[in-house]
Structure formats: C-alpha cells, structure tokens
Amino acid sequence: MALLFGAARHLDSCVFGFAVIPFGSVIPTNFGVEGVQKPIQLVVAPGVNVGVVYVLAVSGIAIYGVLLGGWASNSKYSFLGGLRASAQLIAYELPMGLAVLGVVAASGTLDLQAIMTHQAADGWYVLLQPLGFIIFVTAALAEAARLPFDLPECEQELVGGYHTEYSGMRLLLFLLTEFLHLVTAAVLIVILFLGGWHLPWITGWTDDVGWLGAFLRIFVLWAKVLLVVLFFMLVRWSWPRFRYDQLMALAWKIMLPLGMVNFVTVAVLDQVRLVWQLDGMGWTVVIGAVSWIICALALVVVGLATPRVADNRPLRSAVDLESHIGSRC
C-alpha cells in the first residue's frame, strides 16, 4: 500500500501541474455559449491567478513521492536513493524559484496565460532574461532528473535508486512520471521563457483570434514544447553525468548566486524602465542587450571562480599526515 502511495504521489505531482498549464491561447468569443462574452481559455482550470505558485508547489510534492517511495521499499539502498533524489530536488527547486521570480517580476502576474500574453506584447523572456532562462533550463533538467542530473537513478552506476524494489504497474508509475516531468518542464520553459503560443508576425499578440489563429497558437505552443523535448533528448546523449558533490556544488554555489544576480538584474532594469518611462521597442532592445551583457559577465565570473581541477581525492599532504598519525597510533 505504501509502495503504491509513494508512486502515486510522484505521479500526481506531475499530473496536477497540468491543471493550470494552458495548452493553447483562447478560442474565439463567438463560440456559441449563451452569455459568455469573454474568450474561452484553453486550460483545465481557467482563471487560476496563482498559476506559477501552484505549479511550483505541486512539483514540490514530487519530493514526497521519491522519499516515500524509497522509504516504503523497506530497503536501505532504496531509502538512500530516495534521500539522494530528494536532496537533489530540493537543491534545484531554489534556483528554479529564483528564475521564475524574474519572470513574475517582469510580467507582474502569476497567471501562466497572462505571462504568455505579456511576452507576446513585450518580447520573449529568453531574450530579455537570458540568465534566468539558463538557470531555469538547468534546474528543470535537474528537477526532471534528466541526464546530466539523473543521479536519482543513474542506470550505469546504480541498480535503480529509489525505485529499485518496484516492479510492474508501480514501477511504471515512476517511469511514467519521469517522462511526464520532462514534458511538464518543457511546457513550463516554453510558457515562461519561449513566448508560449506566440510566434512573431504569424500568431498575432492579442486575445482577439479567429478559429485559424486559435488552432495555429495551439500548434505553435506544442511545436515549441516538442523542440524543447528534443533538446532534452540531445542533451541526454551529449553530456556526461555530474558527480554528486559537483551536482550539489552547482546548485548551491553557482546556480543560487546566479539566480540572485538574475533577479536583481530584472528588478533593477524593470524599475529603471518604470521610473524613466522608457517605453517602446528601442528601449526593450537596449534592456535586452544589457541583460545579455550581465548574463555573460556573470557566467565569466562564475567560471573564473570555480576551482581549476575537478578532483575530489584527498590531498597528498593529507595522505602523508594520515599515514604519519596512523604509524604513531
């Protein structure tokens, strides 16, 4: 029972998220429902104005799934696997939150639909907040436990991680969730940073659409999602896996400060725009350029601050000291 509970928690952390994730823009007002004057939103739970918070909260449940799943197995290896996995998920939730915070600060809303509309009017956030995009994509990879960060179940090194003891339909729930996480992450990346249903000169940028436009927007959104998924797949075959200490160091020592830099940049630039009334396309380009420069600078600083070797063996002096002490005891 507990086994099933863990697996189910893991799955529904993923499925719940889709309640507020729009799968298109709107369908036209003249849909034919009496008395409905507003365009009808293509989302399971329309008008949830805390969409971003909800998605983050629900994806936080995934940690319970992993932890309970490992614990319920009554096997110390599964339990350790669950601990490893939950430590990773918690570590990457923070930079992810910071990256999302930049988007929320810039668009001024928590509604995923409104964030897309905002990007359609103002420019995609991947161009305006490149640092936030990089952080979010990295954190999303880690949250979905995709390859450079798939330490919860690295199949070449461990037997299975937290779901070692599972089989049959319950294992399927875990594996299904893993892929569903990938899709959720891709959808969020597209909605928050890649403009959602918006494609310049093709889809328009207001809620005023005809049937053709409505279907085109659905198509554009999911085409983008598939491209992001393709990117995740390419990543899987390209990059080697992190060591566990590197994984943690990346989250806490690199991504978290970078997330701070991103948020401060976005907040300051936003405030500058607001105070000096810098409206119009030209200023958007300038703001975008400034954030790209800051992104490059931040990455260079981080790069220069990282240690020159990726070695975690004991130092030679430490080995000598140990043998010295050992010989005296």
């Binding site: 990455l299 790069g303 220069l304 020159r308 070797v309 070695d311 080995v319 000598d320 043998s323």
Partner: peptide, 30 residues
C-alpha cells in the same frame, strides 16, 4: 600509505582551461 612511495603513482587531474571552467563552450561542443 605514503605519497612518496615508489609503488604509488600519483596522477593529477589535468588543469581546467578557461573554456572548461566557463561551462557553456564545452556544453555547446558536446
């Protein structure tokens, strides 16, 4: 175990260059 032991060969990791430490160039090359 002593580090000066002749039976022990100490191999040090190659030093990372600027491209390696900046992450992004290597990620792109992969």
């Amino acid at each position: 175990m002593k580090s000066g032991d002749h039976d022990i060969k100490w191999l040090d990791d190659p030093k990372l260059g600027i491209a390696e430490r900046l992450y992004v160039p290597l990620i792109l090359s992969g």
